[in-house]
Computed example of a mutant assay.
Amino acid sequence: MNLETYPDRDLMMLRLADLIAGQLGDFLRREGSATFSVPGGTTPGPIFDTLSGVDLDWANVAVVLNDERWVPESSDRSNTRLVRERLLRGRAAQARLVPLYAPAETPEEMLEALADGIRPHLPISVLLLGMGADMHTASLFPGADRLEEALAPDAPILMALRAEAAGEPRVTLTAPVLREAFNIHILITGTEKRAALERAMTLSPQEAPVRAVLDNATVHWAE
């Protein structure tokens, strides 16, 4: 794990947006396409705001969420809704959003179809993750019902998990998909999450799921 610390959050967001833009640009020039996997929540919003105005070949960028709550985009708890509002506007409106939700009562009904949509865009070029104070990342929550399967080397691309801390059922990219990304960035803020990060380094992925990706990641932290 590589840890980058910043004197304040604003500077961290600007520098990380610049780094991500550079890495996506490298892939676009070299491969002609790129895949950018992003978290939900409000923390990465400033990064998305900056990236939405960057001059990239967005038409050849596939945007894939790390995870999604099993709610429609009309819900204020939808990660898809947040990404559309903060990232997929301005110049970045040309990017292709690969869905992690489809209308159905349960995620299990749609997992195979959703995974088929993701498969052509793997491996991920640039992966941006968050981490909770409980050391979860994506929707890999400690104590989730199928966490061990989602952490396994032979896990499928996408799984449905349920956990007390998660609220709704979730769909999530699994540990091997996250771990195989070419560039992995984890964004955290505050002393509580810095302490959680240090604790995660001493635990197993079953206890601290973020541990599954830390070895290959750069963690960006500001108090």
Rank of each mutant, 00 (worst) to 15 (best):
M1A: 13
T5H: 10
P7C: 09
D8I: 00
D8E: 04
D8G: 00
L14T: 09
A17C: 10
D18E: 14
L19E: 14
I20L: 08
G22P: 08
D26T: 12
L28K: 06
L28G: 02
G32D: 14
S33Y: 09
A34P: 04
T35K: 04
T35I: 10
F36Y: 07
F36V: 02
S37V: 13
S37T: 09
V38A: 15
T43C: 05
T43E: 05
P46F: 04
I47W: 02
S52A: 12
G53H: 13
V54R: 09
D55L: 14
W58V: 01
N60M: 07
V61C: 05
A62I: 10
A62H: 03
V63T: 15
V63W: 03
V64M: 07
N66L: 15
N66V: 09
N66W: 01
D67P: 04
D67L: 04
E68C: 06
R69M: 11
P72A: 06
S75I: 07
D76V: 01
R77K: 13
N79E: 12
T80E: 10
R81A: 11
L87K: 05
R89L: 10
G90R: 10
R91V: 04
R91E: 13
A93M: 15
Q94M: 12
Q94E: 13
A95F: 00
L97Q: 07
P99K: 12
L100W: 01
A104T: 09
T106M: 10
T106Y: 11
E109I: 00
L114W: 05
D116W: 11
R119K: 10
L122E: 09
L122F: 15
I124H: 02
L127I: 05
D134P: 06
D134I: 09
M135Y: 14
M135I: 06
H136A: 11
L140A: 07
L140T: 06
A144R: 01
R146H: 11
E149N: 09
A150M: 08
L151C: 03
D154K: 15
L158H: 08
L158W: 05
L158A: 08
A160K: 00
A160F: 00
L161R: 00
L161G: 00
A166D: 08
G167Q: 14
E168N: 14
T172F: 06
L173K: 01
A175S: 15
A175Y: 02
L178K: 15
R179N: 13
A181R: 07
N183K: 14
H185S: 04
L187F: 02
T189R: 10
G190W: 02
T191Y: 05
E192C: 01
L197N: 02
E198C: 06
E198I: 08
R199E: 13
R199I: 10
R199F: 08
L203F: 12
Q206N: 15
E207V: 03
V210I: 15
R211M: 04
R211A: 05
D215K: 13
N216T: 12
T218D: 06
V219D: 06
A222N: 04
A222Y: 00
A222W: 00
E223D: 11
